[in-house]
Design a binder for these strands. Structure first.
Lengths: 171, 171
DNA sequence: AACTAAAAGCAAATTATTTGCTTTAGTGAC
DNA sequence: GTCACTAAAGCAAATAATTTGCTTTTAGTT
């Protein structure tokens, strides 16, 4: 079912996919989908959460600073892209008891940052608390993407990272 | 029309309001609404943006620090409440060309913060740039509300504010 | 008053959603 | 292996929402 949705989303406008369409694509009857998910919103949210799950830990670039820089830039790019924004919207739009969907995404981010933080500790580097990174790097990026006309530039993302970390030693 | 939607939202579950219902409440035919707004999402977004517009400038409490503290606490409370969260969701869910809706909300916030900043300047106080306040206070609050299980506590909000401002002099 | 353009009404056609009932597929007991 | 039993899926009819073409009203202009 998830595959059918992904296929359709890649082929057509997000506003044109309907449950009967997905059912046909998946070779299934619509009522099956209605009974399992309730409505399109929930199904799309489900698919979006899956697609937002990182498929690999952040790249190890040798230092916490560059790890975080690269991770943050990639995160910002992915989330600010058309598909990225659509997925975030889908996740946030699923109603009712489900703060769980959005919570999962936040959880993925925490896990990724924790990997970077653990590596930093293992190297003996100082590194801020993951929650602080969420407040000072992740949150501003996401806020700009969701509410602002222009997504954060690469320079902006880097400046957020710099603010988190101890001053760079002169080369 | 907006009034009809507000009345219905106060009476019943958000997931049970439909366009035909709103049309009846407003004494209007459904096709009128479909033609003007396209779908329920857009109409709800429209109403939500209106309700999110502040009805007064931030209270003048005598100092930039307390102005910002009080504003931030009220902002966090309103946005984290059930209705607040629903309105944010409605605003973010409106699709298509409309980053405009979310942009308006961001604009309201900017205006409010600018009032506080201008007052601070008039008093001769130092005060950070509004964009920095958005990054370091507003964004973390909103991120926690949208993605985290628990909304930010009052203490958390205050600590975000403190970080923005020059150290408080000992009394 | 007559003309015009935009908005609203109306109703038929289409499409999506819900629901009761039937069928199928999978699981464990014997 | 076969027989119940359960959970999920199919099917189809009923209901509800959405779209659309066309007519009517409304408000503004001459």
């Amino acid at each position: 079912m998830h595959k059918a949705v992904r296929d359709l989303l890649s082929k057509m406008d997000r506003n044109d996919v309907t449950i009967p369409l997905i059912a046909t694509e998946a070779g299934v009857t619509p009522s099956t989908i209605y009974r399992r998910w309730g409505d399109l919103q929930e199904l799309l949210a489900d698919v979006a959460v899956e697609r937002l799950r990182p498929d690999a830990p952040p790249k190890d670039t040798g230092s916490a600073r560059t790890d975080l820089e690269q991770w943050a830039e990639q995160y910002a790019d992915e989330m600010a892209s058309g598909p990225g924004r659509a997925m975030i919207r889908d996740v946030l739009s699923s109603v009712g008891a489900d703060t769980r969907n959005a919570g999962k995404c936040c959880g993925y981010t925490r896990e990724q940052l924790q990997v970077i933080a653990d590596r930093a500790r293992d190297r003996g580097e100082v590194f801020p608390d993951v929650e602080a990174v969420i407040d000072e790097v992740v949150a501003p990026i996401m806020y700009r993407i969701l509410f602002d006309q222009a997504p954060p530039t690469s320079a902006k993302v880097l400046s957020l990272v710099e603010r988190m970390l101890p001053a760079r030693r002169a080369t």
